[in-house]
Design a protein around this nucleic acid. Structure first.
Lengths: 340, 340
DNA sequence: CTGAAAGCGCTTACAG
DNA sequence: CTGAAAGCGCTTACAG
């Protein structure tokens, strides 16, 4: 922020030309600049605390070492954790992120892409708040793009996504393995792609095991809604012995329902949650057995794909990288209690 | 991302010089360019979908319309919500944010500032995860800097902060007003600046009302720790009739404790929480009466201060803007139950 | 082995 | 009223 040294300053101090400074500092001095002068440049640069002006570099090379991030607000807000993880990886690689919000409408997307284009971003990361299909704006095909947590309907772009259906199946399987056959399901709205996939995974696993479909309550993804829905399920004539929750907040509500009904978890009721990395499930008592979305891994991978393709100067393939959601054992699952 | 039109392209199409394009598009044509040519430029720019290359503009004018954000990880993670709010405001004003993580150590801060300096950011927003004192790196004094959620110990910089002590006092006052005299306090670690301020506010209000200090439990800011601490307080010989929680996660724990002990809220126990805008308190049953930190207002204000000072070309004063944390009524406070 | 020159795309005095 | 020129700081062919 203070008046910065330029390559000319370094050249003057080292007694060489501006070009020599550039060559030495970019590692292309070998066979071009004498050893003595190389050292002089390095010393001068250190003395002046010189680092090249990235704006000028960007203009000259048309590589800004900047990545655009296009994101928008979902039911659970912005995908801040995904973006933060991608940022970490990018910073480590010397890239900087410029984030833009844009509703998934043509017009908004165009405006945002234009803004990023002006800034000469080298690549673009599209980060969805919840797993969904994505209709890319046409201009995207031309540049380096990676979709994170959404799928390109046209199969033209690289996508990094969690296996939400597998996550649902895994959650159900934990309960099946312990002997549960009456399983309830607390879910967000079913017309929501992410929820639909999770629910499909749960029901699919039950069907595969020859077990009746889970009695399902679909609500807002809120603690209080989860409490109400779980209470309704648990006060039925023949209540389930276990619940799967598609989101952490619903699981918090379910745990409240159990506490209010005097049910112990996992003694009277087993609970498994799918986890959006809000870090709630891990802090409950008992900590919930859960299937976690690997935000950190997915985001790092997406950023790396983008950065590596940039370094290689190559186009990205249209591959889909699907990440397994791992099971994390908590203390909320036990064998079902004997029926009264 | 596709090959963009340049000012030269517009000039060619409009039949004028490059300078004319620049003047017209920057609103400085008046008295310099004839009406007819102005219109020709405007039409040509529209036809070519021309917008000036921000990198070139930045190099030429040394104003990049980019703001640096310096932040780090606190006990509750990164201040993502504060940053998101600041981003919203900045984007609306045509500014873009470049975020850097840096531990609050000299060396890390220097490295991050150097990276931002290379990128020629116009100003800097320092965003702390929890209210704290901040020792600015010396180079900062020279540029446009606003501190968000932290205080410059040297009183040289503009700061935007919440009134945490006032928030604590307000929370306590709600309970005092309803007639509570036995008030317990669930707090994070007391050596933590933010927690210390909140606790001081609570105890100060009690003292001012001539009430005995709150029995205090200090724990990690986690749901399970809150549950354990609340259980301990509520199973004492003479339990408090109300609890203040310094954080939402502790409040969730307290509500679990009440549920497990068969205490109804607010019938048997009143609860007030300070709120870090995780939106948990609002979703509980009952929704908690709480004192909210106005993240949105603070962040917008900080961004606006910075952007306005940039537009005015002026230096920022070293003022401290302290934001009141407003009370939000929930359903978790009632008059104390009669003592058995 | 080294330095002078061109040029990325823009804005801004400066001649005419 | 208009166009040609300089220059922001850098990198990269290109002469010598």
């Amino acid at each position: 922020m203070t008046r910065k040294a330029t390559a000319q300053d370094v050249a003057d101090l080292a007694g060489v030309s501006r070009s020599a400074v550039s060559l030495v500092l970019n590692g292309r001095a070998k066979g071009n600049i004498s050893e003595a002068k190389q050292q002089a440049v390095i010393d001068a640069a250190a003395r002046l605390d010189y680092t090249p002006n990235a704006v000028a570099q960007g203009l000259r090379t048309s590589r800004t070492r900047t990545l655009g991030v296009l994101t928008w607000r979902g039911l659970g807000g912005l995908p801040l954790h995904l973006i933060a993880s991608a940022l970490q990886t990018s910073l480590n690689a010397g890239y900087v992120l410029v984030k833009m919000y844009a509703e998934p409408t043509e017009i908004d997307q165009h405006r945002a892409l234009a803004a990023l284009g002006n800034r000469q971003v080298d690549g673009l990361l599209v980060v969805a708040p919840e797993l969904s299909d994505y209709q890319p704006v046409e201009t995207m095909a031309l540049s380096s793009v990676v979709l994170l947590n959404c799928l390109d309907v046209g199969h033209q772009l690289t996508c990094v996504v969690p296996d939400e259906e597998g996550a649902g199946a895994r959650a159900a399987q934990v309960l099946l393995d312990r002997g549960h056959r009456d399983i309830g399901l607390l879910a967000g709205h079913l017309d929501h792609g992410q929820t639909a996939r999770r629910v499909a995974g749960v029901q699919g696993a039950l069907a595969a095991a020859g077990v009746a479909p889970a009695a399902t309550r679909s609500t807002d993804v809120r603690v209080d809604a989860g409490l109400a829905a779980a209470t309704a399920l648990l006060t039925q004539e023949r209540p389930p012995t276990a619940l799967v929750c598609t989101n952490e907040r619903l699981a918090v509500g379910a745990l409240f329902a159990a506490a209010q009904l005097g049910l112990s978890v996992p003694g009277d009721l087993s609970l498994v949650s799918l986890d959006d990395r809000e870090e709630l499930a891990a802090q409950l008592s008992p900590a919930l057995t859960r299937v976690e979305r690997p935000d950190q891994l997915m985001a790092s991978h997406a950023a790396e794909l983008l950065i590596e393709s940039l370094a290689a100067g190559g186009r990205l393939d249209a591959q889909r990288y699907t990440f397994v959601c791992p099971l994390v054992e908590g203390g909320s699952v036990a064998a079902p209690a004997l029926r009264r």
